[in-house]
Amino acid sequence: MHDKLKWRPFWATHVGAMKGCLDFLNIPMSDAWLVGGIGHAFIMNINDNVSAAGPTVWNTEMMMLLGHNLGFHVSGVFAWKSDPQFEIKQKLAWETARRALDQGFPCYGWELGIAEYYVVCGYDSFGYYYSGIGTAEYEI
């Protein structure tokens, strides 16, 4: 369990997950620098239906790719629930998170609670602990 690894409150939960990970790694960065550097500040967060789901339906890959411009790298396992190999990819994602956490690297994931981003803080024999919207301190 990494007690200092926590999601940071942002309306854009992906940014909050990244900020929590950067804080954990002691990488000093202002909120404005992060949001601008990963391109989030320049995205119109609307979908084709102009619904409240807009910020959750667009491809955020560019945010992860642009992190190198700010001195950090994001890598991971990516899958949609509709993927034919989803269960295999989901298992691989949790194994990857476990290895990263064991090595002292922060992790975050999508839709661990509701359709938002969460920081994965640790794990035990029962499951994983995460921090984000709708969680108390940690939630299994």
Rank of each mutant, 00 (worst) to 15 (best):
M1Q: 06
M1L: 07
K4Y: 12
K4Q: 12
L5Q: 00
L5D: 00
W7E: 00
R8P: 01
P9G: 09
A12M: 13
H14Y: 14
V15A: 14
G16K: 04
K19S: 08
K19F: 15
G20K: 02
L22Q: 06
D23H: 05
F24R: 04
F24E: 03
M29H: 06
M29V: 05
S30E: 12
D31V: 09
D31N: 14
A32H: 10
W33N: 12
W33G: 05
G36Y: 04
G36Q: 09
A41H: 12
I43P: 03
M44A: 15
I46A: 13
I46W: 09
I46F: 12
N47S: 11
D48S: 13
V50I: 14
S51T: 14
A52I: 10
G54Q: 08
V57P: 00
V57W: 14
T60W: 13
M63Y: 14
L65I: 09
L65K: 14
L65F: 10
L65R: 14
H68W: 07
G71P: 03
F72W: 09
G76V: 01
G76W: 01
G76T: 02
A79C: 09
S82N: 09
D83Q: 01
F86I: 00
K89N: 10
Q90D: 13
K91G: 03
W94F: 14
E95Y: 05
T96M: 05
A97Y: 04
R98K: 15
R98H: 05
D102G: 01
Q103G: 11
G104N: 04
G104Y: 03
G104S: 04
F105I: 08
P106A: 04
P106Q: 02
C107R: 06
C107M: 08
Y108R: 07
G109C: 00
W110Q: 09
L112I: 03
G113P: 02
A115R: 10
A115L: 10
E116K: 14
E116Q: 13
E116G: 07
Y118P: 01
V120Q: 03
C121P: 00
G122K: 03
Y123C: 02
F126W: 11
F126D: 15
G127M: 03
Y129W: 06
Y130M: 08
S131Y: 04
G134S: 03
T135R: 00
A136T: 05
E137F: 10
E139K: 13
I140F: 07
